[in-house]
Computed example of a mutant assay.
Amino acid sequence: MHRINVAEAAPQGYQAVLGLEKYARTNVERTVYHLVKLRASVLNGCAFCVDMHTRDALAEGESSRRLFAVAAWREAPFFDERERAALALTDAVTRLGEHGVPDEVWDAAAKVWSERELADLLIAIATINVWNRIAVTSRTQPPLDV
């Protein structure tokens, strides 16, 4: 059962997060953007976001094979060095825990992404984690009629 509609209850807060989303969508490579959004959503168990980002990626031409492999990206041969670095950073940022982002994860990302690209990627990862937490906490469900 859906708990709350954050967009209605706190429209200014919702618009602020939406602003981050629009920035990330505009400034991160589309393929990587979709992979990052999907990976964080899988890790956070956000059915709404997994559904939405999978559908969006498919609509923009991403292969279903690569999307399925996001769940096991470390073992899958379908991702290039930049995508792997972005996925590793997504894992580390999403699972901050007590240890933060390990230097080896950051250094691998910094090797293949410019400072600006890293900043934009970090904003995208942080933003999907905000959306995941809103959707999971509010029990937002994916639409059944799509």
Rank of each mutant, 00 (worst) to 15 (best):
H2T: 01
H2S: 00
R3A: 01
V6S: 02
A7V: 04
A7H: 05
E8K: 03
P11A: 04
Y14V: 06
Q15A: 15
Q15S: 15
Q15H: 13
A16E: 05
A16R: 06
V17K: 00
V17I: 09
E21N: 02
K22W: 04
Y23L: 14
R25G: 07
N27V: 05
T31E: 11
T31Y: 05
V32F: 09
L35E: 04
L35C: 11
V36T: 12
K37E: 03
L38E: 06
R39L: 14
R39P: 15
A40Y: 10
S41P: 13
V42H: 05
L43Y: 02
L43I: 12
F48Q: 02
F48G: 00
C49D: 03
C49R: 01
C49H: 03
V50G: 05
M52D: 00
M52Q: 00
D56V: 10
L58Y: 05
E60R: 11
E60A: 13
G61T: 04
E62T: 09
R65K: 03
R66I: 12
L67D: 07
V70Y: 04
V70D: 02
A71C: 11
A71T: 13
A72H: 13
A72I: 14
W73Q: 07
W73C: 11
R74Y: 03
E75T: 12
A76R: 08
F79S: 02
F79L: 01
D80F: 15
R82Y: 01
R84M: 14
A85D: 03
A86H: 08
A86G: 13
A86Y: 08
A86N: 08
L87N: 06
L87V: 06
A88C: 13
L89S: 02
T90W: 05
D91T: 13
V93Y: 09
T94Y: 03
T94K: 05
T94I: 09
L96E: 01
L96K: 03
G97D: 06
H99P: 10
H99V: 07
H99K: 08
G100Q: 09
P102E: 07
D103G: 10
E104T: 15
E104Q: 15
V105L: 10
V105Q: 05
V105A: 08
W106N: 08
D107N: 14
A110E: 04
A110Y: 06
V112G: 13
V112T: 11
E115S: 15
E115G: 15
R116F: 03
R116Q: 08
E117R: 12
L121Y: 02
L122H: 06
L122T: 14
T127S: 10
T127V: 14
V130T: 09
I134M: 10
A135I: 02
A135C: 12
V136Q: 00
T137L: 06
T137C: 04
S138N: 01
R139K: 06
R139T: 01
T140P: 02
T140R: 01
P142R: 00
P143Q: 06
L144D: 03
D145I: 03
D145L: 04
